[in-house]
Computed example of a mutant assay.
Amino acid sequence: MKKLLILAFVIVTISSLYYDLTIGTLPGKNDQVAIADDIQPEKAGSNELLQDPIPFQEVIVEPGYTVLSIVEHLHTGPIPATIQEVIYDFKQLNNGTEPEHIQIGQSYYFPLYDS
C-alpha cells in the first residue's frame, strides 16, 4: 500500500511540474500578449484610416541581421513596443513582407518608436 501511495505521489508531482513548465499556472505577460494578438488585426483593419503614420527608417539588410536586431540597433535603450507590435508595424511598412523573408542586400522600412 505504501508503494502505491508513493507511486501516485510521484506521478502527480511529475505531471504538475510538466504542466507548470509548459503551460503555467500564474497569469503573466504572455496572457496579455495573447489577448493583444487576438485584437490587433481587427483593430488595425477597422480604423486603418484613423491611425497615425508609423515613423520609419530605410535600412539595407546585412548578413546575420534580423528585423528585431535592426530595430534594436536603431534605438538607444529598450524599445517601447512588444515584439508583436514591431512585427506588425514592419509588415505594415513593407506591404505585408514577413520578417522571416527579408533578404540580404535589400532595403526595407523599419519602424521607429519614441522612448
Rank of each mutant, 00 (worst) to 15 (best):
Q51D: 13
V12M: 10
Q32R: 08
L93G: 01
T66K: 15
Q57W: 00
A81L: 04
V86P: 00
A44K: 02
L7G: 13
S69E: 07
P55W: 11
I104K: 15
I11P: 00
Q103A: 13
E62Y: 04
Q106H: 05
L4H: 09
Y108M: 08
L5S: 05
D37T: 01
N94S: 02
P99T: 07
L21G: 07
Y109P: 00
I14P: 00
E85H: 13
E62I: 05
Q51E: 13
L49E: 14
I54F: 03
E62H: 09
K2V: 08
V33A: 15
E58C: 00
I102V: 12
Q92N: 11
P27Y: 07
N47V: 06
E42C: 00
I54M: 05
H75S: 11
L4V: 04
K91S: 00
L7P: 01
G105P: 03
I83A: 11
I11S: 14
N95Q: 12
Y19A: 09
G77I: 05
P41Y: 06
Q57D: 01
I83D: 15
K43A: 13
Q40N: 07
T25I: 10
V67D: 01
T97C: 03
P27Q: 10
F90W: 08
T25Q: 14
K29Q: 08
V33I: 15
N47K: 10
L74G: 06
D114R: 13
Q84E: 14
P53F: 11
Y18A: 14
E42D: 11
V10D: 04
Q51L: 12
T76Y: 11
P53W: 07
L5W: 15
